[in-house]
Simulated assay, not measured.
Amino acid sequence: MYRLTFDNDSTVIVYIWDDAENYWPATRIDETENHADPFSHASGIDLFEAAHRRLDALGIRTPRIHLADRSRSHYPADIAVVEDVPGATLEALLQQDPHGMKAPLSRLADALDVMQRHQGPGFGKVALIDDGGVSQGYSCEQVVLDRALDDLAEAASRDTRIADTRDRLEDVVRGLAATVRPRSEYGLIHGELGPDHVLVDRHGNPVLIDIEGLMFFDVEWEHAFLRLRFGEHYRWLRRSGLDEQRLTFYTLALRLSLVAGPLRLLDGDFPDRDFMMEIAEHNLQQALAFLRQE
């Protein structure tokens, strides 16, 4: 992403989908075209536009699109020029003035409620569902289980502490998955909604960004991530009626993903390596804590 400043001091943000600027390893980049996998790497102009259309139709604020271009005539990659929303991220504002963020958090909760009550005909990325496609897997919990086992194997190949406890962690993962009852209702979720993916505009309204992973899925997946990322501020976003067994299973799956993902990213040339290692280490400790609970 780049911020462009014009002669009149107005600004826009440019998204560029160019493999040369993608920090993920090449094998992960190749997965972006597999939209049938709900957890494939969420990157691409098709995902971006489909997510934007859906959120806009629901009245959910996200930066306005000025131009979306696939022609490669302006730049040798797909690009989008979007509104540069004045204001900081919700993450920065919560650090500066947590008590002053009650209104934006309340409005974000309202937006999430609208999204999660919006049901899809199946689970999967919005772009896929809008095109009449069908996701891989027969249920959200089965997709999460398969991904968690893959993440566990990948994390074990990179860290001896996970390798030494892999069998026990796999037993816990499978045991938690077995407690989840089948379901066939899927709400609209952002998929990776941390406070760094929410801008707050001049009027105190939340603006969702990094929306390419928008999908229909179990809303507990969203709330498991919200609890991890918002911490004490999650109380503003809490929703009644969630399946606690599903939440627990998804929380462990997310912990494993947040170990394997950062370690995988470090296979490339990601610049802020210490930050990624901190994420991996924190979530590794949290994943191992499930063994002590068992």
Rank of each mutant, 00 (worst) to 15 (best):
D146L: 08
Q96L: 14
H99W: 03
T160A: 14
E244C: 00
L252T: 02
A260R: 07
S139L: 11
H203P: 00
L237E: 03
D210H: 02
S73G: 03
R168F: 06
P104L: 08
I279T: 07
I209M: 06
H41C: 14
E232L: 09
N283R: 07
H197S: 15
R117S: 11
V134T: 14
Y15Q: 15
D9Y: 08
L58Y: 04
L93A: 05
E154A: 13
N8Y: 06
R202G: 15
D9N: 14
T89L: 13
A80C: 13
Y2G: 01
A260W: 05
V81Q: 09
T179P: 00
D150R: 15
I211R: 10
Y234Q: 04
D9S: 14
D243Y: 00
W236F: 15
D201A: 07
R61G: 06
D113T: 13
L108S: 02
A109P: 02
E294M: 08
L55D: 06
R117N: 13
Y23I: 10
A178S: 15
P76V: 12
L4P: 03
A68Y: 01
V134A: 12
D69A: 09
S71I: 13
L47V: 04
R264G: 09
A178N: 06
I13K: 08
G231I: 11
N34A: 13
R255T: 02
G132W: 14
Q293Y: 12
L152E: 03
R174D: 09
W17A: 12
T251S: 04
D113R: 13
A57V: 02
D56F: 01
L266H: 06
E232G: 03
A80P: 11
E220L: 01
F123R: 09
P86L: 08
L105H: 05
W17C: 12
A51V: 10
V14M: 15
Y75P: 00
V12L: 15
R168K: 14
P271D: 07
L208W: 07
L94K: 08
A289H: 13
S135Y: 02
Q286G: 01
D113P: 00
L266W: 03
F39I: 10
V172R: 13
D196M: 02
D196S: 10
D37V: 03
L105I: 10
A57N: 13
V207C: 12
P86D: 12
A153T: 10
L169N: 04
D274A: 14
G44Y: 05
L169D: 07
L208S: 06
S106N: 02
